[in-house]
Write a protein that binds this DNA or RNA. Structure first.
Length: 276
DNA sequence: CTTGTGTCCTGTAGGC
DNA sequence: TGCCTACAGGACACAA
């Protein structure tokens, strides 16, 4: 569910609220969301640790702890982090981190696909291979046309699939890839190695633009209200989407009907008038 | 290595 | 109301 802008929004809020807070207890309500290490060790290692900083890499949240270690969280499709006051377990709560200053951070994951990890040193468990292999972030200065064309070189895959590849575009997901392709004027099924350098440049600019706009608007909360900030507030980027979730509706630029196609098992939206 | 497909898991919305 | 299907902001393990 959450992509780079949503995770970044969550990061900023948690950094503000949790910096300096000490974990006094870790309640595990469902063991299989603990990606590493085993449940008992996960709980023991976290108890007593103080949150020093909250960082983000791609769609991963990284809580830097002292005296040592990191708590790494990936929300996958349906995960949430909520700051809660009371003791009552939230619906679909899988893990709860209770803090010394009162209140707790609840990891809520209806589908139980998301994972939390604790790591000590520099070496990462195999379960975090995806983390280690992350590519550059589109909002990074070094994510430039040279970088992207090098990664697209010789790749016959559809451009949409490569935008979703975290080893190439860390943090990009289904919504923002469609939005970026719209602004770049490129159809999602185009072969990556057949994009002209002008198109790659437009794509780089579009990615940076839509991700920054997403962050500025605190993320995308669709009508179903599935993504929320840790304090429960909605993101405002949903109103600003050009194509994602708008199948059959008129393009906001040219008026053509937005189309929805399937790529793999996932939906992709584009405007047949604006994108070629 | 690359590419496409299936799978993990659960909830919800919509059709009949 | 109940049953069935499709779909969901993700990432992997596979087979070809």
């Amino acid at each position: 569910m959450p992509e780079l802008p949503e995770v970044e929004t969550i990061r900023r809020q948690l950094s503000r609220v949790l910096s300096g807070a000490r974990i006094v207890r870790v309640v595990v309500r469902r063991a299989d969301v603990i990606g590493y290490p085993a449940v008992g060790r996960f709980q023991r290692m976290l108890r007593g640790k103080v949150v020093r900083a909250v960082r983000r890499r791609g769609k991963y949240l990284v809580f830097v702890l002292s005296p040592a270690g990191k708590l790494i969280v990936h929300l996958r499709l349906s995960g949430h982090l909520r700051l809660l006051g009371g003791d009552a377990a939230a619906k679909h709560e899988r893990v709860r981190f209770v803090f010394d200053r009162g209140g707790s951070l609840s990891f809520i994951e209806p589908r139980a696909l998301g994972r939390v990890y604790f790591v000590e040193g520099k070496e990462l468990p195999p379960a975090l291979d995806g983390f280690r292999r992350l590519g550059r972030e589109p909002i990074d200065r070094r994510f430039d046309p040279d970088y992207l064309s090098a990664r697209f070189q010789g790749r016959r895959a559809r451009v949409k699939d490569l935008l979703l590849d975290q080893r190439i575009c860390a943090g990009v997901g289904n919504i923002y890839s469609d939005e970026a392709l719209f602004f770049a004027g490129i159809r999602p099924l185009r072969r990556a190695d057949r994009l002209k350098s002008e198109e790659i440049s437009r794509l780089v600019r579009a990615l940076k633009m839509v991700l920054r706009a997403g962050i500025k608007n605190l993320g995308t909360t669709m009508a179903d209200g599935r993504y929320l900030q840790p304090d429960g507030a909605r993101g405002r980027f949903g109103d600003k989407l050009m194509v994602y979730g708008r199948a059959g509706e008129p393009c906001r630029v040219c008026g053509a009907k937005v189309k929805r196609i399937k790529i793999g098992s996932r939906s992709s939206y584009f405007c047949p008038g604006c994108q070629s």
